[in-house]
Every structure is written in structure tokens, then in C-alpha cells.
Design a binder for these strands. Structure first.
Lengths: 341, 341
DNA sequence: GTGAAAGCGCTAACAC
DNA sequence: GTGTTAGCGCTTTCAC
């Protein structure tokens, strides 16, 4: 570890190759017109010295650093990771490097990170977070794209999942397999996603002349809440042949509780979750149908829009990307008449 | 978004404040001896122009960039996140920024990232991954620290969890609550962690004059395997009053399967998992006792060692950090005589 | 085709 | 105290 031999400079390369630095620079960057032999000689010298161009010094001229900052509003978590990865992937392909900054839900900390990024002369910034709720914009004189999370300023570029569309697809799927008494169990009412999805469920059912079986049940984003909710549904005497849940964790709790009281999934009750989190959908008995928000795609799109903005073609506004439904066994059996309770 | 007004330079600040660039630089960096009034005037000018020093230009002198690269061997996942976060936290406090690079298990891609980091003149590199198995070192003339994962070169600095110690603690805990017939269900045998933990279990039991109830069961890191394994234990007629699992997911599968056949946890069978992954430990019925590897602490320690190495005080070698046991209800009831089957 | 020189934004000697 | 100057490593005119 750490034999700290000085990095070779282009002057070193030039000296070894017996040319001037200007020539060496041209040779290595494929600019100007040089004799092929000279070009090779310089390349060989660079190889010998394992020369890697000093990006910082180069950037001094171009004004650009081919670097972007990625800031998470809150802590890095299950939702931000895929977004980060998608973005990292798209940016890496465009030769950009990514500075990772964890905001930790602390505005001071975030502000500090923004300053640092500015000081490092990033070409743009991607802001993400673990909830879809809109947040106050960060104001810097640079291209900024919000991914998953969105900015309260409608002119800012935000790439978000179409949660309403996703919830509608879930309901439509359940109706398509013959379910008409669909309950909805979701997260806390103060949570943006919970409200949006619940509203979408109510709307879509209303369009079909139906209504939610029992009122939507707001609680927590946890398995425990899913289990409790089943108790409430049963105690309330609600008749239901399907449950659409606001998250996979909730759905999993619902599945466990239903099994515990002898209701079969999917025969008696079809079940659909939200997030398509493999750990949950596969661990669930039976495997869980779920809505996928395509977070990695969101990150990739955000990165592409940021690159475009950096190159002078911004895409202002809120861009909602479709969710898709992944059907598994928890909702595969059409409701036969014998299963009606 | 993106009013791309040029970044203010120190020359702009100097001009506005009516001083030379040298003076402005001193004023902003608190060096040299200046009249307090001058200092203020420069600061004010910088504020007005929202000047942020160009870190790249500054680094040209210092040789250091106050930047480190973080490379994940495989894809960014559940294990690398906490490590990343711990490191990001420790580094951020030291004014360092972090370049995130996702290796995706692709050596070509990794090599590309290493080159990029070299070109950006990072001061050091942290390598991590989702498995503890040793990997081939990346050879660069820079301080490198391996976190969670380790390097096959024993002289490289690696910060890893003491999995053996963790497994021993789990076994000791089970013995302390009176269990003597302890089964072990874990991941694939070709997986380093599975082997190490299984060996530790066997060794610790042997020290107490006991042996594993039934042979250690190697399978997959999944809930499904946990459920299957219970079937195998029962079918094999193995008598057991505790199961120590190689992961929380496996433990959870075991819990579900035991409940399904009427064995009570923890009364009949005490259960301990590994990873202390909150989603699993809390979702489990009952909440799961588990071994915590303190991944965030690992990341933090790795970052601190990297900083020390950058400052000339390397810590070569493999550093194993203790795991600790988090006791929850799945193992709280001492075995009473009446529960013995 | 190749070299010399200016300059990107900043810091650190050294004058004054 | 403050200004001047010489680089840091690189690219890019512009001579030759």
C-alpha cells in the first residue's frame, strides 16, 4: 500500500519521448497533426511511466470538470440506492464521475455539501431521497435534476414515478381477475405516497362503479401494521376478496395474518404490494404480485436529462415515469364462485 | 435551473475589494497578517459574488485533492451501503469528498474506474463489496483500504467483521439460556461467510463438549431455504432446541416453518440470525435475536485508517472488528424442563 | 510536424 | 500590511 511515488506529468512523458510538452499533449489527445511515429513514441513513454492525465489541471481550461454531485435529501436507503446506481451507470458511460453526498435529513449538512460541490466545480447536481414528496429546491447556478423526489418549483426538472398510474394498474389487475371487494392498507396518512396511492385506488374503483372495501387503512410502512390491519378488517366485518397494499412489507404482513386465520392467498384473497422489493416479494408466501417503480430507470433518466441540461438542452418540469405491475402467485387465481365467502 | 453565470474567481473578488489577488487569497484562507478591515472587505466581496474557491486550481499546488474514491467490487447492495455511509460520514467530517464507483463484478469496469480515480488524483481508495471473501488487491501507488471485503495480500489494510467471534457469541448465548441441541442452517458452502461461521459454531460447541444438532445445513441465503431446512431437520428426526442461522433471512424462514408445524419460538426452539437486518428482525415473529457486524462502524474505521495512511501513518494488515449480539424475543426464554421434547 | 509561450485559478515566496 | 511574481500541470494558439 502506498508507495507514494509522484504522479508522472506530461513534462516527464515529453522528456522521455524527446519531444516538447505541447507535442506530447497533442499526441495523447489525438489532436493536431503529428507523425504517426512521434505519436507512438509519446504513447509508449506515457505507458512506461503509467501516466494518467491530471484531470484537475485539464479542467482548468475547459471550464468543465466532467463531474456531478449526487445529494440525498435524507439518508441513503432502499429507495435511493437503485436511483443512485442507475444514475452512476448512465453518468459513468458519459465519462462523468460522481461525488456522493449524504444529506441525512439535515439542511445544514446539505448546504455544506452543496458548497463543497460548487467548490469542486461539478457540472451539475442530482438530488434524490427516499420519499417522493416535493422538497424545497436547492438554488445554485447550475443544472439540477431531482430524481424520485421532486422540487416544489414546477419549473425545476424532476423525474418521478407515476404512483397514481401504478396504483391504478394494481386495481385494474385485481378487477381483471374478478375481485370486486378490494381493501386498501397503506402507510401513514401524512406520507405523500400513501395519500396519492389511496386516492388513485378510490378513483379507479369509482370509475368502475365500485368503492374501497372498508375505508382505506392508514398506518405504518411495516409488516406489523399489515398484520394488525387484517385484524381490523376482520373485526370490522369488512367483506373483501382482495387487498392492495401500499408497500410490500405491509402486504407481507397481510399475507401472514391471513394465513394465520385460515384465509387462502390468492384463492380467498388476492394480494398486491407496492415497490417490488425482491426480498419481500420472494419471501412472501405465496410470492407477491407488486408494483415496480423502476427506480434504476428513474436514476438513469435523471442522469441523461442532467447531461442534456449541462450540454445546453434542459428539460424543465415534472416528468412522471410509468410504473409496471409484476404478477406473481399472490394474485394469479381468478376468483371462482366457490371461493366467495 | 442553470443560469450559467461564470463562477467568480479570486481575481474578481480582489478587484471588487480593491486589493491584489495575493491579498485576497490570504484574507480568504486566514493566512499571512492582514488588517482586520481588509480581511472583512475581501470577505464581503466574496460573499457578494458568492465566490467559492476553485478546489481544482488550489489542488494543483498542494498535490492533494482531498478526495477519495470508493469502489464496490460487486454491485452496491445491502452490505455495502452501511459501509459506504459510515465511510462517507467519517470522510466528510475530514473535509474529504467521495467519488462513488460501482464495479458491478466486472474487472474491466473496475479497472476503468481505477484509472479514472487516478486521473482525478484521489488521495486514496476504499474498496468494498457485499461478501467478506478476500479478493485480489488493486495495485496503485496510493493508500488503499479494504472494508468488509479484504485483500488477499495480508500486508494490505483490510477492515473486516470478526465473523467467527460473532458466531461464537450466538452459540454462547444459546447455551446460556440452556440450549444444548443447536442446529445450524446457513448459506451456500462455497460462500466464505457460510464456511467460517459454520466452523466457528462447530468449534465453540466442541469446546463445550457438544456438537451441532444434525450436520450444518448449507443452502442459500434465502427465506425459502430456511423453510426447507426445517423440513429437512424434522424429516431427519434431528432433535433440536435451538437453531442458529447464517442470515436473518434464513432465520425468518425457519421461524415461519416452525410456527407452521406448531413448534413455538422461543419456548420450544430458540432462534438466532446473523446480520441484524432490521427489516427481517422486526418483521419476524417473534422479533429475531441476531448478530450485528456493525457495518457502519467498519466503514468509519476504514475511512479513518485511510486518512491516517494518507497522512503517512498506514495500518497494514487485516483488522477484525468485533460483532455483537442483539437479543430479542426469539431467544429470551430460558429452556424450562417442561419444554423439552 | 514540432516547439515556444501564454494562460486557466490559485497559492506561496519574496519584495516593498 | 500589501503587492508582485513564479509556478502547479495542462491545452492551445501561433511561430518556425
Amino acid at each position: 500500500m502506498g508507495k507514494l511515488e509522484r504522479h508522472a506529468t506530461i513534462a516527464d512523458v515529453a522528456a522521455l519521448a524527446g519531444v516538447s510538452v505541447g507535442t506530447a499533449s497533442k499526441a495523447l489527445n489525438g489532436r493536431g497533426s503529428l507523425r504517426e511515429e512521434t505519436r507512438m513514441r509519446v504513447r509508449e513513454a506515457a505507458r512506461q511511466l503509467s501516466f494518467e492525465v491530471n484531470a484537475g489541471a485539464r479542467n482548468l481550461h475547459s471550464g468543465r470538470t466532467y463531474t456531478v454531485g449526487m445529494i440525498t435529501t435524507d439518508t441513503i436507503g432502499r429507495f435511493s440506492i437503485p436511483v443512485l446506481m442507475g444514475a452512476e451507470d448512465a453518468l459513468g458511460a458519459g465519462q462523468m464521475s460522481v461525488f456522493l453526498c449524504d444529506g441525512r435529513d439535515d439542511p445544514i449538512r446539505e448546504q455544506y455539501h452543496v458548497k463543497t460541490l460548487l467548490s469542486r466545480r461539478v457540472d451539475g447536481i442530482i438530488v434524490t431521497g427516499r420519499r417522493t414528496q416535493a422538497r424545497a429546491p436547492i438554488s445554485v447556478g447550475l443544472p439540477v435534476v431531482y430524481a424520485f423526489i421532486s422540487s416544489t418549483d414546477p419549473d425545476d426538472c424532476s423525474v418521478v414515478p407515476d404512483e397514481t398510474g401504478g396504483a391504478r394498474k394494481a386495481v385494474e389487475h385485481l378487477m381483471a381477475i374478478g375481485r370486486t371487494r378490494i381493501a386498501h392498507v397503506t402507510g401513514p396518512e401524512h406520507h405523500h405516497s400513501a395519500r396519492v396511492r389511496a386516492q388513485a385506488v378510490a378513483d379507479r374503483l369509482a370509475e368502475a362503479g365500485l368503492s374501497v372495501a372498508g375505508p382505506p387503512l392508514f398506518g405504518a410502512w411495516s409488516e406489523i401494521w399489515g398484520r394488525q390491519a387484517v385484524g381490523m378488517l376482520l373485526a370490522g366485518g369488512t367483506s373483501f376478496d382482495a387487498v392492495f397494499c401500499g408497500s410490500d412489507q405491509i402486504a407481507r404482513g397481510v399475507a401472514d395474518a391471513l394465513r394465520a386465520v385460515g384465509r387462502r392467498v390468492p384463492e380467498d384473497v388476492a394480494l398486491v404490494g407496492f415497490d417490488n422489493w425482491d426480498v419481500m416479494t420472494r419471501g412472501c408466501q405465496p410470492p407477491l404480485t407488486s408494483v415496480d417503480m423502476n427506480l434504476e430507470g428513474l436514476g438513469r433518466t435523471a442522469a441523461e436529462m442532467l447531461l442534456a441540461a449541462i450540454n445546453g438542452t434542459p428539460s424543465p418540469g415534472r416528468h412522471a415515469r410509468p410504473c409496471h405491475l409484476v404478477v406473481r402467485e399472490s394474485s394469479t387465481v381468478p376468483l371462482g364462485p366457490e371461493a366467495r365467502v
